[in-house]
Nucleic acid binder design. Structure first.
Length: 349
DNA sequence: AAGCCGGGGCC
DNA sequence: GGCCCAGGCTT
């Protein structure tokens, strides 16, 4: 009766959050919320969840949409592969499961963008399947409760925590228990300043007894940040503007931006003009520089972007440029990175 | 096993 | 400036 699970469920009944996706057992909506919340705080993701459920009330409507529209709705949330995978998975549900969201854990786990955590979260919340979730909150709560120093970003550590989490699961109420331990991590057992003196689990917390709370969980990986220099060519001709869809294995895949010349170091316009990419775009026809605008330094978790926008006007477009031209009035229909969005807003384009 | 993928909030 | 966030995919 005084088990960890009982204390967590009791705490959750008093202090748990009332969140939109907890008011439904629709696996589609629960799946949607889980993908949105991957590596994303509830406060940041909630607005997107409401936006998506309104525009795409069921999996069929999501599957029927063009990928660009899904990305546009996702704009600003980051980790855009989630949006592409979400869309691909919706089509998987239609094609492989006849539009019915799968029930079996392994079938759910087979969907694009659904890993161990998300599959367990969906199946426990929607179907009360006895699957323990292991997210960042669970790592922290369990690492402290049991004073475990296994690195959470090592294979052995992940396996150890997964088994421990499963052993702690309240199999009578898997859905509620999972929500409880995650809320507990998010609201009570916080990364810093967890206020252990007033914690309902203080009596059972081994890290508290050992004085190692601040050192749990252990993580071995270190994040390296590299610098990149983006030289954007904001080219307009009449009522059209050049826009380009990012491809390849890089940031912002599938999003749109101005034609980009990336350099190894800061570059001035005269240097860019000599490059073949520039000549292919502007050709030999006359053009003129309106002005060059250095954008504020843009910080990603693993990259620091130094971007400059060169506003250029030209009378005629080369074939390569014409293929990229879109009506300037339609720029708002395209999913663009935050960096570009801020620029467009600031200069009212 | 290690790297990569965004953006925002907190200290 | 570094860490963290309801992680997953690729190499």
């Amino acid at each position: 009766m005084n088990s960890v699970a009982d204390i967590l469920l009791d705490w959750y009944a008093r202090e748990g959050r009332d969140l939109p996706w907890r008011r439904t057992r629709d696996p589609y909506r629960i799946w949607l919320s889980e993908v949105i919340l991957q590596q994303t705080r509830v406060a940041q993701g909630t607005e997107y969840y409401l936006r998506f459920t309104e525009r795409f009330p069921d999996v069929a409507s999501l599957a029927a949409a063009p990928e660009d529209e899904v990305l546009k709705l996702w704009q600003g949330l980051g980790y855009y592969s989630r949006a592409r995978n979400l869309h691909a998975a919706a089509r998987q549900v239609v094609e492989r499961f006849g539009g019915r969201f799968p029930v079996a854990l392994e079938e759910v786990r087979s969907l694009r963008g659904v890993g161990d955590y998300t599959a367990a979260a969906i199946c426990s919340a929607a179907y009360d399947a006895p699957c323990a979730v292991v997210d960042g909150n669970v790592y922290r709560v369990l690492a402290r409760l049991f004073d475990l120093d296994a690195p959470i970003d090592s294979t052995a550590g992940k396996r150890a925590f997964a088994e421990l989490a499963q052993s702690q699961l309240d199999t009578a109420h898997p859905g509620r228990y999972n929500q409880a331990i995650m809320d507990f991590g998010a609201l009570r057992c916080t990364p810093s300043s967890p206020r252990c003196e007033a914690c309902p689990l203080a009596g059972q917390c081994l890290a508290l007894a050992a004085g190692t709370v601040a050192a749990r969980p252990v993580k071995q990986g270190k994040t390296r940040v590299r610098d990149r220099w983006f030289n954007y060519l904001h080219v307009s001709s009449g009522d059209r503007t050049l826009l380009h869809r990012r491809e390849g294995r890089d940031i912002w895949q599938g999003l749109y931006e101005f034609p980009l010349i990336e350099t190894e170091e800061p570059a001035e316009l005269p240097e860019l003009v000599r490059l073949p990419q520039f000549r292919e775009l502007l050709g030999d026809a006359p053009w003129h520089l309106v002005r060059s605008i250095p954008l504020p330094k843009h910080q990603l978790s693993h990259q620091t972007l130094h971007a400059v926008v060169h506003r250029i006007e030209t009378l005629s477009l080369t074939p390569a440029a014409a293929a990229m031209a879109v009506p300037t009035a339609a720029l708002g229909d395209y999913a663009v990175p935050r960096l570009i969005d801020r620029y467009l807003i600031k200069y009212q384009i």
